[in-house]
Nucleic acid binder design. Structure first.
Lengths: 136, 136
DNA sequence: GCTAGAACGACAACCATTCTCACTCTTGGG
DNA sequence: CCCAAGAGTGAGAATGGTTGTCGTTCTAGC
């Protein structure tokens, strides 16, 4: 079966994610791996990322730009995103770890949760200024 | 300034979203508008969606497939998504409306929040079965 | 060694989204 | 009423991240 050794590409990629602050896109991972002795084709990077995600080791979210960024699942970080300029700020707050959410088995309907995303979209202070200056 | 009448395309599009259960992609909105007397170019659909989003009238999230889907902001629904087959189920639970989240001004750092997304990714019951059958 | 099957990489294909640019519509003067 | 300026629009091209294809390489079992 698909034991750990069957996918020798998983380890280097996972380590790279763990060693890196913040999130990395598949393209960035591909670039960085080229610089090491674990150089890997882009298609394989995507394949391995999907495996790691389904194994519950890596989480993923889509930026407004459309690219997906990845991080280890244990990295419980969420974000504020400006819908105008795309600015991203960390949101030191998690609805799950705060514990106050009644996430019973009933609500999960048989789902086995692997990771979650929580994002607040709005206008950053700079874009609010521009809005006022522009009109309104 | 950008008063309501300056953007005559906003109303039909917004109404269409409000009349529709669930979320619509830009492409779907474009298709459906063609069938009405408010036919609109695809580029304009995207332009208007961005306007409505920045005006705080419409929210948006990215599906794993990469396409963005839109809904009225007041539609406070969240989702379970299967990372394997892409199945989406409603998650009748919201970390914001549950109120238990300490979302103070400090955390928002000047952001004016417009909408939020909360998603749980995991394996649906069907894909868990397959996983067991396949190996492991 | 030899074969079957999985994994891999280079490259093509895909497709949602964004960009371009010529055209139209509205608005305010003259 | 006509004209000019600016904003809005749409068709189609361009973009770019992601996925598919397919021949090659690697691994496991014999």
């Amino acid at each position: 079966m698909a034991s750990a050794t069957s996918f020798p590409r998983q380890q280097p990629l996972l380590q790279l994610l763990q060693q890196t602050d913040g999130e990395l896109s598949a393209q960035e991972l591909h670039q960085r791996l080229r610089a090491t002795r674990h150089s890997t084709g882009l298609a394989t990077v995507y394949r391995v990322l999907k495996q790691l995600q389904q194994a519950g080791l890596v989480r993923c979210r889509k930026l407004p730009s459309g690219e997906a960024v990845y991080a280890p699942v244990d990295r419980d970080e969420h974000h504020l995103t400006c819908v105008q300029c795309g600015l991203i700020q960390a949101l030191p707050l998690c609805p799950i770890s705060s514990g106050s959410l009644g996430l019973g088995a009933v609500l999960l309907q048989g789902f086995r949760p692997l990771f979650h995303t929580f994002e607040i979209h709005g206008l950053c202070s700079r874009c609010q200024q521009h809005e006022i200056a522009g009109d309104e």
